[in-house]
Design a protein around this nucleic acid. Sequence first.
DNA 1: CCGGTCATGTAATCGGTTACATGATTCG
DNA 2: CGAATCATGTAACCGATTACATGACCGG
Lengths: 209, 209
Amino acid sequence: MRRANQTETAVLGVLSVQPMTGYAVREAIRDVLGHFWSESFGQIYPMLATLERQGYATRQGSTKPGSSVFAITRAGQGRLTELLRQPIQDAPPRNGLMLRLYFGRHLGPAECRSLIHDARLEAEQRIAELTAVRRAIESGAGHGADRPYWLLTVAAGEQAARATLAWADGAIAALEQLDPAPGSGAAAAPGATAGSGERAGGSGGTAAG
Amino acid sequence: MRRANQTETAVLGVLSVQPMTGYAVREAIRDVLGHFWSESFGQIYPMLATLERQGYATRQGSTKPGSSVFAITRAGQGRLTELLRQPIQDAPPRNGLMLRLYFGRHLGPAECRSLIHDARLEAEQRIAELTAVRRAIESGAGHGADRPYWLLTVAAGEQAARATLAWADGAIAALEQLDPAPGSGAAAAPGATAGSGERAGGSGGTAAG
DNA sequence: CCGGTCATGTAATCGGTTACATGATTCG
DNA sequence: CGAATCATGTAACCGATTACATGACCGG
């Protein structure tokens, strides 16, 4: 089963917006697609060479020496559409936070809460960034037919981040119900000195229903 | 910068729940952690050998010949906690759907709607699966202290899937406003025969606000 | 002139999937 | 008995990251 060359799609895609150097391609992917895609130099430069060789992009060694601007060709546009139509190859899931929470018993409620709190902060920051990006797209008059599609992806990111926020709140609340150290309020329950955690079941864990 | 051995974490983690064969480790990861983690045989068997060599797991070649059951050791439990405390290494984002939608101009509204529709179906199915898993965890009396943590991760998956549903609905609606082929209702607007798509701006793209 | 940014590439390495080879057990 | 499942491992390959080497250009 051949693995898809999604790098080709990404590079041709950003070149379809406007011609640019390899360096700028990477910046465009990091800054604009950054919330849902990533490529490194080690992938981009060889790919640009390949695209040139196959006639999907042309290199214009101009402006400054030691710098070449790549532009997508007519054939490259056809190739891009073809690539976009290929079945989606989603990478196998690898969520480090969930891996840790699933085995959170070995960390205990307090450390898990800390992990979730960090994730919440990250989600908040992502929302701020995406909102800024959306504002820029909405007000900026430059990008023409691309606009509605870009707004679609931004909306997806915002929705996902908001979902993370909601989940985190519920999860932290559930964990606070589980151990006696929320920082304030009711102290440790009377009697229990150092329970092994056997009674962790019950109604606990109704997080973010 | 050393890349983290999160495979070790995952394998030790499932062994911490109960001893099992390598084959069962993979099944556990696929069926239970499957929504947010994955490992293949090619990773699991070498890792089990390493864990045995390092004293984090023991092999009990018993019950049936040609089959060995691995159990986590005391040292392995310490190692697991250590691994869980290491900073989260999240894989660089690679969302194939978003990559396609971002360059959706080259596909057109209809094909994009189809992609989103597929994603919506997937999300629905994931919700169904996760709900079943949650029911099993809630009713099953077996798993003791692990339960609240497992419910946490399941809740995260459900929340994310619901967010996808909401986004997909908004996105499809936005795209239908963009082109004249929703299948029913108002046909193509009068006058425009084959617009180049220049007027795709305006109020379009208020998806899933 | 020196540090930061822009710019281009290559080599080493690694994490991970896929495919292959092999065999026992169980169930219809 | 034959197919499906359980079970263990190895080898090849590949996509991707990281690090390295190099150099132009610009502003303070």
